[in-house]
Computed example of a mutant assay.
Amino acid sequence: MKAVQFTEHGDRSVLSYEEHPDPEISADEVLLDIKAAALNHLDIHTRRGLPGVDLAMPHIPGSDAAGVVSETGSAVSRFSDGDRVAVSPGRSCGTCEYCRHGQQSMCESFHLIGEHVTGVHAELAAIPADNLVPVPETVEWPTAGSAALVFQTAWRMLHTQADIAAGEHVLVHGASGGVGHAAVQIAAHAGAVVYATASSDEKLDHARDCGADHLINYEETEFTDEIYALTDGRGVDVVVDHVGPATWEDSLKSLAKGGRLVTCGATTGPTAETNINRIFWNQLRIIGSTMATPGETDDALSLVWDGTFEPHRRTILPMSDIARAHELLEEREGFGKVVVVPDSEVQRASDSQTQSGDSAYDR
């Protein structure tokens, strides 16, 4: 098979798309014929190298994908050959105290497909059956392959961890990114008043399409000033912050008394200064969140599959153009998810379009 891979950490030049041995499945795995996959900022961090993560090389990245089951292991009963499925990348042990209480994303050995172990940016992937979610026939491959990570993450952040309620005011940073645009949709669906930040008016137009009520261009104004103005000095009830040091202190400043800041990442770095006085005086809560449980994932994706939520896409590229795909994320070009498709699927789609006049990405 062909796969995206790198043999050392570094810039985009370490990426290649070339031959790699076909995966062999174990008893609890299926062999997945990848139809579409997607990038997350996690793929950038993994390529550059993460502290404490020692990868076997060459490494195939990628945590988001969807495709067709082509072979099943002897212990697999949930799926059969030909089933359409999407990958949910979180891996847990199933036996620690957290797993036994249904908190798989808090597992003592929690890790992610694509970050800690072989990923899915390839023609084929061996995936544990427990990490697969059925995909209805009505869902297009680019949608199925780009929804799982960001929508389950945003769902757990807002519903489980922050426990948002209708009528609350929610600030979502980076509304043009994967988690950000999912969080805008989820908060709006819950009946919250949504404030979205982004770096351009064009990106904010997309955020409006996702359900944002108030739009803040952080390149032109201080978002804290806008929040105070829009809330008559009160502040918001919840801030979704996956940015880190660049927004952290002002995110806390933007909260109303008793407000909650929920975070799932730190794209601008791991260390931020915190005004502790503001936390105890305003009785704020800082809440961490990582991925989701299987039940939370099912809840979120059911609303993607029925069209309530939509993974917005900035482009679809062949996997051989993986360096450009990484560049789009690193340079913050465009809005929504970057989807990559195996070159063999691109050719198949092209051949089918020539014959029928319609795109075959959704077949």
Score class of each variant (00 low, 15 high):
residue 167 G to Y: 11
residue 167 G to A: 10
residue 167 G to T: 06
residue 167 G to I: 12
residue 168 E to I: 11
residue 168 E to F: 13
residue 168 E to D: 10
residue 168 E to C: 10
residue 169 H to E: 14
residue 169 H to A: 14
residue 169 H to R: 15
residue 170 V to W: 10
residue 171 L to W: 05
residue 171 L to Q: 10
residue 171 L to K: 06
residue 172 V to G: 02
residue 172 V to Y: 00
residue 172 V to P: 01
residue 172 V to A: 01
residue 172 V to E: 02
residue 173 H to G: 13
residue 173 H to N: 11
residue 173 H to T: 07
residue 173 H to R: 12
residue 174 G to E: 08
residue 174 G to A: 15
residue 175 A to E: 06
residue 175 A to H: 06
residue 175 A to I: 03
residue 175 A to T: 02
residue 176 S to F: 05
residue 176 S to K: 06
residue 176 S to T: 13
residue 176 S to Y: 04
residue 176 S to Q: 07
residue 176 S to E: 02
residue 177 G to S: 14
residue 177 G to R: 04
residue 177 G to K: 02
residue 178 G to Q: 02
residue 178 G to W: 01
residue 178 G to R: 00
residue 179 V to R: 02
residue 179 V to Y: 02
residue 179 V to A: 05
residue 180 G to N: 05
residue 180 G to M: 05
residue 180 G to P: 09
residue 180 G to Y: 03
residue 181 H to S: 15
residue 181 H to Q: 10
residue 181 H to M: 12
residue 181 H to C: 07
residue 181 H to V: 01
residue 181 H to L: 10
residue 182 A to G: 09
residue 182 A to K: 01
residue 182 A to E: 05
residue 182 A to F: 06
residue 182 A to Y: 03
residue 183 A to R: 11
residue 184 V to G: 09
residue 184 V to S: 03
residue 184 V to I: 14
residue 185 Q to F: 10
residue 185 Q to C: 11
residue 186 I to Q: 07
residue 186 I to T: 06
residue 186 I to E: 03
residue 187 A to L: 11
residue 188 A to T: 11
residue 188 A to F: 00
residue 188 A to K: 13
residue 188 A to L: 01
residue 189 H to S: 13
residue 189 H to E: 12
residue 189 H to W: 13
residue 189 H to N: 13
residue 191 G to T: 03
residue 191 G to L: 00
residue 192 A to S: 15
residue 192 A to C: 15
residue 192 A to E: 03
residue 193 V to F: 04
residue 193 V to M: 04
residue 193 V to A: 00
residue 194 V to F: 04
residue 194 V to L: 07
residue 194 V to P: 07
residue 195 Y to M: 03
residue 196 A to W: 05
residue 196 A to S: 12
residue 197 T to H: 01
residue 197 T to L: 06
residue 199 S to A: 15
residue 199 S to Y: 02
residue 199 S to P: 12
residue 199 S to H: 02
residue 200 S to Q: 03
residue 200 S to L: 04
residue 200 S to E: 02
residue 200 S to V: 07
residue 201 D to N: 14
residue 202 E to Y: 05
residue 202 E to W: 05
residue 202 E to Q: 15
residue 203 K to D: 03
residue 203 K to G: 11
residue 203 K to H: 09
residue 203 K to R: 15
residue 203 K to M: 06
residue 203 K to A: 11
residue 204 L to F: 08
residue 204 L to K: 10
residue 204 L to M: 09
residue 204 L to A: 06
residue 204 L to W: 06
residue 204 L to R: 04
residue 205 D to A: 14
residue 205 D to R: 15
residue 206 H to I: 05
residue 206 H to V: 14
residue 206 H to P: 00
residue 206 H to N: 12
residue 206 H to M: 13
residue 206 H to Y: 14
residue 207 A to I: 06
residue 207 A to P: 12
residue 208 R to I: 01
residue 208 R to T: 13
residue 208 R to M: 09
residue 208 R to W: 04
residue 208 R to A: 15
residue 208 R to E: 14
residue 209 D to F: 04
residue 209 D to N: 12
residue 210 C to D: 15
residue 210 C to M: 15
residue 211 G to W: 12
residue 211 G to Q: 09
residue 212 A to S: 15
residue 213 D to T: 09
residue 213 D to C: 07
residue 214 H to R: 10
residue 214 H to D: 04
residue 214 H to N: 07
residue 215 L to N: 09
residue 215 L to W: 10
residue 216 I to G: 11
residue 216 I to Q: 11
residue 216 I to C: 13
